[in-house]
């Protein structure tokens, strides 16, 4: 091969190689940048989906609460009022009877019914929470559960609690209500401790000395509806930007810790 021709051929080959390398490099760079763009879009989409789910959840819980509020008001004002009037009527009739003691049993049943209506009304919408705040509402809740179940319930407060938005307090209250309810209904506990700790975060710890439970199994149980309460707890905690942890290492009883960041007023 003569010299100038070979140089020309090598030059053509070199140009060919460089062209191929540039094309390959361009494809690799395109892959890197396009992948970044796709990931950003995917994250944006996920954030939008998450926001939509949160809003749906909020709306659902709010409609639940407003329905409870309406039911509580109807029970207290309408049925409760009517029952009180009936009681007054019975007392008046009893005075006219030759033996007033004949209606004592009926009056007792009516008193029990009035108490039940009040209790159900309070459970549906705790007026203490609206009037006196979370601490008093939780104290009253523990006292009420102790009185009706016979289980010893201690409520302890650590740190100085600062009030939150009413809706957030209502959500915390519902979580504690559900946890105590679970301990009473399923855990066969004889003692329940509720601790509200307010330091960097708001932490609420509910522990009992019962038989314990497998939270994951309950949540994953799609058939029996056993995990519905825990599912609601998790949803409420998510709306509070908090988290619920179940102590799995515990040998006896159960311990649930709800942690909520302070000053995060994300929900309505």
């Amino acid at each position: 091969m003569d010299q100038p021709q070979s140089v020309q051929i090598y030059l053509i080959i070199a140009i060919g190689i460089v062209t191929m390398l540039v094309m390959a490099g361009a494809i690799i760079i395109f892959v890197v940048f396009y992948q970044k763009k796709m990931i950003q879009e995917q994250m944006k989409r996920q954030a939008l989906e998450f926001e939509y789910q949160q809003k749906m959840l909020e709306a659902e819980l709010q409609s639940q609460e407003s329905e409870r509020r309406r039911l509580a008001a109807d029970l207290h004002d309408s049925i409760g009022g009517m029952l009180s009037t009936i009681r007054v009527g019975i007392t008046t009739i009893a005075k006219k009877l030759p033996e007033p003691g004949q209606v004592d049993q009926t009056k007792q049943m009516l008193d029990d019914t009035i108490s039940s209506v009040r209790r159900i009304s309070r459970d549906l919408m705790p007026s203490t929470l609206e009037k006196f705040g979370l601490l008093n509402a939780l104290t009253e809740l523990c006292e009420r559960f102790q009185a009706t179940s016979g289980i010893v319930i201690h409520f302890t407060e650590e740190g100085s609690y600062q009030t939150m938005d009413k809706n957030r307090e209502l959500m915390v209250f519902r979580i504690v209500q559900e946890l105590i309810n679970n301990a009473i209904k399923h855990a066969q506990a004889s003692e329940i401790n509720v601790t509200l700790s307010y330091q960097n975060n708001l932490a609420i710890i509910v522990e009992d000395n019962g038989i314990g439970f497998d939270a994951e199994a309950f949540i994953n149980d799609k058939t029996g509806g056993k995990g519905l309460g825990l599912f609601n707890i998790e949803n409420r905690a998510r709306l509070l930007s908090g988290r619920v942890e179940y102590d799995k290492e515990r040998r006896k009883g159960s311990k649930t810790v709800l942690t909520i960041p302070v000053g995060n007023e994300t929900i309505v």
Binding site: M1, Q5, S6, I9, Y10, I13, G16, I17, T19, M20, L21, M23, A24, G25, I27, I28
Partner: peptide, 28 residues
């Protein structure tokens, strides 16, 4: 990918260089 893209340019002219040009292929 990078390496074989460049090599494709070489392999596609190898036969021509050897048989037609009689190149010793050292540089290639």
């Amino acid at each position: 990918f990078f390496s074989y893209s460049g090599k494709l340019a070489i392999y596609s002219v190898t036969n021509y260089l050897i048989t037609v040009q009689g190149d010793n292929m050292i540089i290639i």
